[in-house]
């Protein structure tokens, strides 16, 4: 990568870029980032005595930027397959708005900045966990698993599940059972969520040569695995109530949402042909997003209220 040519002028590729800030924001995968922020807020609020709002905000920002940086590095490495798939063809690198070198420099710079900011602002355990998350997503998932095994998103899903643990560590300097439970919910949620999409987009994945479950083991086996993971996810989703760090309201919500998820997963398993099968898979994909959102939203609301009452009691005393 060279920014300055032999004549001392800035090289054409860099100076002549038409990339605007929006293209760089797209490199950060804002939708994934918003999920990371949301799950990290839940992890942060699980801290027994709360956290200073400024430190909490800065930690969340560092975690979000770290997640975005790993997204940019993922797009840098996957530019070849992104150009083939309809879902990813318009991303900044395959569309030619940002070069691969620029994305690599952007991703690496933000990764270092995020890790060192989190270390300085919160603590170095959280920073180490964030660094490991970025490494896991970029090297273990993107560079290794994604193109080599149908278990890619099962193991790679850990990267997306780490934010609550990182955030809890930022607030407390420790790892707790409660943050591990949140990790488990996201980890077990990932396979049925992505395989529901893969069932619909299997031709796209096949064209790009990515060994997603439906392409390797077939749609029937994928439907069975979706059902099995959903059977595990439904009770794991109830664990926060069972272990006592969420209320009965959360428990009821988790049971109801888990039952709905199981119903949709069973429909995907039963309805196997035609447009109806695609519709069932799309319903499950959409509902899985709602499922995770509502569970974490309930935890965020409950913990915010609890910390609010605690603060009010302290001020009143």
């Amino acid at each position: 990568m060279s920014f300055v040519g032999e004549s001392g002028t800035i090289s054409k590729a860099t100076a002549g870029s038409e990339a605007n800030p929006g293209d760089y924001i797209a490199l950060l995968k804002p939708r994934v980032m918003s999920l990371v922020i949301f799950t990290a807020i839940a992890g942060l609020l699980l801290a027994p005595h709360g956290v200073n709002p400024v430190i909490g905000f800065a930690s969340l920002l560092a975690i979000a930027v770290g997640a975005g940086a790993s997204g940019a590095l993922n797009m840098w490495y996957d530019a070849d397959i992104d150009a083939i798939m309809s879902r990813t063809r318009k991303r900044p690198i395959p569309s030619g708005r940002v070069t691969g070198d620029e994305a690599l420099a952007f991703g690496l710079t933000l990764s270092f900045l995020a890790v060192f900011t989190l270390g300085s602002v919160a603590n170095w355990l959280a920073a180490a966990l964030l660094a490991f998350t970025i490494f896991f997503y970029v090297v273990i998932y993107t560079m290794w698993l994604k193109r080599s095994t149908p278990q890619n998103i099962v193991i790679g899903g850990a990267a997306g599940a780490f934010p609550p643990i990182v955030a809890y560590a930022a607030a407390t300097g420790d790892i707790s059972l409660s943050s591990i439970v949140l990790f488990s919910i996201i980890f077990i949620w990932t396979p049925p969520h992505f395989w529901a999409l893969a069932l619909v987009k299997s031709a796209d994945y096949a064209k790009a040569g990515i060994p997603m479950m439906p392409n390797v083991k077939g749609a029937a086996h994928t439907r069975l695995e979706i059902l099995l993971y959903s059977l595990v996810l439904a009770p794991v989703g109830v664990l926060p109530w069972f272990l006592g760090f969420a209320s009965m309201v959360y428990g009821g919500l988790a049971i109801a949402l888990g039952a709905a998820l199981l119903f949709l997963a069973a429909r995907v398993y039963i309805v196997r042909t035609g447009d109806a099968a695609d519709r069932c898979a799309k319903s499950l994909f959409g509902f899985s997003i709602l499922y995770l959102f509502l569970l974490f939203a309930e935890i965020v609301i409950e913990r915010s209220l609890s910390l609010g009452f605690e603060l009010a009691a302290r001020l009143g005393a």
């Binding site: 002028t9 800035i10 054409k12 002549g16 870029s17 038409e18 990339a19």
Partner: peptide, 21 residues
């Protein structure tokens, strides 16, 4: 002297936006 890179109006606009960001 090498005149260097001559940017199009669109490239100049994008560069300004990037600098502001």
């Amino acid at each position: 002297e090498d005149p260097g890179v001559e940017l199009t109006p669109q490239q100049l606009k994008s560069r300004r936006q990037r600098n502001i960001a």
